[in-house]
Design a protein around this nucleic acid. Structure first.
Lengths: 158, 158
DNA sequence: AATTAATTGTTATAACATTACATGTTGACG
DNA sequence: CGTCAACATGTAATGTTATAACAATTAATT
């Protein structure tokens, strides 16, 4: 797969980097060079990126570029909420607002792979009840909607 | 990966097979031997199955067992609603009620990989509004919740 | 029977992800 | 300061999931 999605764009990359630094400092986490670089790569991308796309970027930036390098950094970043994984694309995207509690939701265009994050906070009510009734303890909800973005839908109609 | 999940169990396999037959007849679809067999395999499994698990079953049943064989049959079955894909496990599960319109939701236990389908019909209200506002035309919503099933949650507590 | 569409057979390879173990780095504590 | 433990990285190999491409066959349509 070449670059795997399109047009995702975080508003304030440097702002997010600062938040990540603060968060790590506060929680005694090591915001190491690779981890920092991977977050930078994702923040700088207008597209969601697959692990191997990130690996290429790392390589160009002079980092080691075997798969575990990227997967480890991504694991860390996802774990602490700086990055989300888009499971339908096996791809990753930096989060705009890692400091706010939120259940990420993504809308993915089937035509152009545009990915838009639209959050629901904290979790849609209808879920809470369903899962509670079933006795299931939910730790994480992944909600991804596939369809057509405005642009692509328009092209089909016209 | 060995068999990839646990304890999913469709209530009435033969009932579902009949529905599938009727649906295909009605819509002029070819319910070919492989497609039928793959659905049977999934209906007969107490676990969700990966494509390569299905391939093994096909092999044992005397079918051809190169990857495309399974993926094509699964594509057909998913497309027509007889089977759902659980993206978090890259695995497939037969649907109990392919004849009813529904947005499948899965709860996946992080400990034991128990998968439970809990449907919302048609789509939680909060989504409809979010997506409408964004101009996105949703064709499919994938909702998967990860956490702990009752049994596993109980073990942690005790 | 001829034509076209749909499906299947088959090989090869692409794309995604993890295991395992060695090495290095950091931080806590005597 | 030294040493131990925890954490992080380097590296090779491999495991797992999925698709591309094209040939051969079968089914539906005329």
């Amino acid at each position: 797969m070449e670059d795997v999605g399109k047009n995702h764009r975080v508003q304030n990359p440097s702002d997010v980097m600062r938040k990540a630094e603060e968060y790590c400092a506060l929680h005694g986490l090591q915001f190491t060079p690779v981890r920092r670089k991977v977050l930078e790569i994702l923040l700088g991308s207008s597209q969601v990126l697959g692990a191997y796309d990130i690996l290429k970027h790392l390589d160009h930036a002079g980092f080691k570029s075997q798969p575990p390098v990227a997967y480890r950094a991504l694991e860390f970043l996802v774990k602490h909420g700086f990055v989300h994984k888009v499971v339908h694309l096996n791809a990753f995207v930096a989060c705009d607002h890692p400091d706010e509690e939120h259940a990420p939701m993504f809308m993915i265009c089937n035509e152009c792979d545009l990915v838009v994050e639209v959050d629901s906070n904290p979790l849609p009510r209808s879920f809470a009840s369903t899962t509670k009734n079933s006795g299931f303890h939910v730790e994480e909800a992944v909600i991804e909607m596939k369809g057509l973005c405005t642009a692509c839908a328009g092209m089909v109609v016209s």
